[in-house]
Write a protein that binds this DNA or RNA. Structure first.
Lengths: 253, 253
DNA sequence: CCGGCGGGTTGATCCGGATCAAGGCGGACG
DNA sequence: CGTCCGCCTTGATCCGGATCAACCCGCCGG
């Protein structure tokens, strides 16, 4: 009963183009905002960006944005909500590849194989900007700022992939994970010390290559050391410096 | 005493443009060959590709192609030899990020930070094609095939980064590692069943998040099971199917 | 010639985290 | 209402691979 569909209504309205003057609000947290701004809000190029963007959603928790094997046609920027990407091997074992917050982009790893190599599953009710990739490429050829932006997005993701590379203790990985999330929330203007974990302990464990029990134990220990306050999935970082210290081997710089 | 510098001479000749008709031979195994061909050998665009390529080398085993923190100006395609990329944390611990064979490209993860986030170290005497990245970007804007190629390279590397993601046994990781190398050699026209491991057991161990002793033991076991023949760093795969089977959880498809 | 050294192999021991097990909590639904 | 089920927590036990240790080999430099 709200004019701005708050979530939890309208099972998948087509709603291709954004409907409102909320545009600037949405785009402020978007990974493409700088490209859009570089393209110039008042230039005709913006109209072209508008053409290739499609606002999609809502997806409810558990719904797929795309599935392994789907033909690659577009990349998606998270407008709101949270997503995990994962691969499922033929024995049915899941491997979580990453979590994506508002403003971040999923689907880039599908460019080369031309089919999505993983599933993307909403963890929250989520909305997305869908960017047709052929159109995006064509635009990138004409607007260097857009091309540069795409290169940077790809390269950035390469960097973050090597975050989980090393072999490190459960404590180090957990601390690095929390500080990474904190930094990414902060980069989008959210609180860096209080946030909601949209993913289950099991998903965190899988992502960090730990058992769910270990994640639970480490969080309990962090709590007992007054590093964090945690109730269910509500998290507060009480001593970010100590956590950064703990996770430093895994963290940038 | 050979007209085509065989390696091991001329400490770093400037030699900016390829000097010979061997061009096609070199480029046949290069990651950019398809882009070069797409650009058209006879068109004026090729001249532009020539302008932005610089052949560099030789680098001897242990020498750096680039170092962490160096400003990012170019990406490098391996012409011959092998490279490892690695990060060294402030406690001096090394983390090997990957190995690069002839035809593969290093430096893509530096686009976003604009400085190299890792070292690249030659494992063999190696030669490279150095592509000025600003020039490459400019060319990509004008030639869609080049742009597409860069996108695909970036995306491909994203995919391979998630190879080492999962938590798997030492045997699985080792088998997957060997089959991955085999596939990459095969893709460049080398033998898929007999090749030289340019990296030490320690480097393999570090890359796979194992101890060097474990790598040694697993290889010994594989040998005793007649899966491989190995003498020092010379490797022959005697039963690729069994190895693929072993590593399937980690391998594409 | 020797000694040092990096790399590799193999054996013995240890430990961090996986696994097994039991129980708590809260939400969905008959 | 009670039951079920997914998620989380905590305790007990186990095991794969790390670590420690000893040794070999080839290479380099003196």
């Amino acid at each position: 009963m709200d004019s701005k569909h708050p979530a939890g209504r309208l099972p998948e309205p087509p709603n291709p183009i954004a409907d409102d003057g909320d545009e600037a609000h949405f785009c402020g947290t978007c990974a493409f905002s700088s490209a859009c701004i570089a393209a110039g809000y008042n230039k005709p190029e913006l109209a072209q960006l508008q053409c290739l963007v499609e606002h999609v959603g809502p997806f409810r928790a558990g719904e797929h944005i795309f599935r392994t094997g789907d033909p690659f046609r577009a990349i998606f920027a998270v407008r709101s909500g949270t997503v995990k990407t994962r691969m499922v091997d033929k024995e049915g074992r899941e491997q979580v590849l990453g979590f994506y917050l508002p403003g971040e982009v999923i689907g880039l790893n599908a460019i080369y194989p031309e089919h999505f190599p993983c599933d993307a599953v909403a963890l929250d009710t989520s909305f997305f900007c869908r960017f047709s990739f052929p159109a995006m490429s064509a635009l990138a050829s004409r607007i260097p700022a857009v091309q540069k932006h795409l290169f940077r997005l790809l390269s950035k993701e390469l960097g973050s992939a090597s975050l989980l590379a090393g072999d490190h203790s459960a404590d180090e990985r957990m601390a690095a994970f929390l500080m990474d999330l904190a930094g990414r929330y902060a980069a989008r203007g959210f609180s860096a010390t209080r946030f909601h974990l949209s993913m289950s302990r099991g998903d965190i464990a899988n992502y960090l290559r730990l058992a769910a029990e270990t994640v639970s134990r480490v969080l309990s220990r962090f709590r007992s050391q007054n590093l964090i306050r945690i109730e269910g999935r509500e998290l507060e970082l009480l001593n970010p410096d100590a956590l950064r210290q703990l996770g430093q081997a895994l963290l940038p710089d």
